[in-house]
């Protein structure tokens, strides 16, 4: 099956400082892929670059193909059809993404007029249908309300409604629930998964929260310092992480049940993009690091069906694991 979107060797630099250093990622139609990593790992930049949303001084290279067509560096007229139409994006802070002085109806209808051939009463009817779909009660009346009249969770619902206006094939959700309380986060995540099933829409869920990604995605890619270091089906990644950084991230998460143990914190901090270490960017913090780790940056290598890891030590540990299992 041809992938919906295929990113190859995507790199981004700001004033000569590399922040994204060769990302490869493909998404099938209808698939949910999670991107996890700490701040500065390049999760958001990957999609901002892919959709041509970075400022002009950003140095972007590589290839992003949507249904086989290159969209990286495509003319604005073509990108306008893609952004909001084929690919929609929602962000962490929904309140700042809405215009405070326009009613929800004006803003929803604007998105509908841009991406769908609707006019007059049909636009308004469609706007009401979208608000209903995302679970805003009393949609007909609430269309006339302004953003400040809604709660944080409701504003994120409205953003989702707007994102759905163009009937997208892919929704990129960048930390969609980070600013919300736990019980409201559960509501929004449930809404996203329902909509995704009903519309057969692919989704990229960007989050620093491993739990959120694990529960809502089919596949997960772990990013560190501008690269994908491990990609695997969600259940396998959390049951059996291979990259020492992925292992560290999971070990850092306090358990909610079972015996309490000391957290296995990853020592040190994320490297400064302006002075990346030679070789593997994680080596200075890695407990398994050996001399060759400092020589060359490991590439993302497929190690099993649908699993890939960028670590020379992980392959060794994997072989050891398999050897034990064979006995």
């Amino acid at each position: 099956m041809a992938p919906l979107i295929s990113i190859k060797d995507l790199s981004v630099g700001f004033q000569g400082v590399p922040v994204l250093r060769g990302v490869d990622l493909t998404l099938q139609k209808g698939e949910a892929v999670g991107l996890v990593g700490e701040s500065g790992s390049g999760k958001s930049v990957t999609w901002l670059a892919a959709l041509g949303l970075l400022p002009r001084h950003a140095n972007v290279s590589g290839s992003v193909r949507l249904d086989g067509r290159e969209i990286l560096g495509a003319p604005a007229s073509e990108l306008d059809q893609v952004r909001g139409g084929r690919v929609a994006m929602i962000f962490q802070d929904p309140a700042s993404a809405l215009n405070p002085v326009l009613t929800i109806r004006r803003q929803l209808c604007e998105a509908l007029a841009l991406h769908r051939d609707l006019s007059g009463q049909t636009v308004k009817a469609e706007a009401r249908r979208l608000l209903d779909l995302v679970g805003i009660p009393d949609a007909a009346r609430r269309l006339e309300a302004y953003p400040h009249e809604f709660s944080g969770g409701q504003v994120q619902r409205i953003m989702i409604a707007m994102a759905l206006a163009g009937n997208p094939d892919l929704l990129v959700a960048d930390e969609p629930t980070t600013a919300l309380d736990a019980t409201i986060q559960a509501q929004i995540l449930e809404l996203l998964s329902t909509i995704r099933r009903e519309m057969d829409m692919a989704m990229v869920l960007i989050s620093h929260d491993l739990g959120v990604v694990a529960e809502n995605c089919d596949r997960v890619a772990v990013m560190y310092a501008g690269r994908i270091v491990e990609a695997a089906p969600a259940n396998q990644l959390f049951a059996d992480p291979l990259h020492p950084y992925a292992q560290g991230l999971i070990g850092s998460l306090p358990p909610l049940d079972g015996p309490r143990r000391r957290l296995t914190a990853i020592p040190g901090t994320v490297p400064d993009p302006a002075s990346m270490p030679d070789g593997c960017a994680f080596a200075p913090r890695c407990t398994l690091a050996a001399a060759p780790c400092g020589l060359a940056a490991p590439t993302l290598v497929a190690i099993a069906n649908d699993r890939a890891v960028a670590c020379i030590r992980a392959e060794a540990s994997r072989r050891a694991l398999l050897g034990v299992a064979a006995e």
């Binding site: 409701q154 694990a214 529960e215």
Partner: peptide, 17 residues
């Protein structure tokens, strides 16, 4: 949310905060 657990059986509260 917990890694390794799918959201089945989650109590999702209705209503706003």
């Amino acid at each position: 949310p917990a890694p390794g657990r799918r959201s089945a059986g989650r109590i999702v509260l209705a209503g706003d905060p």
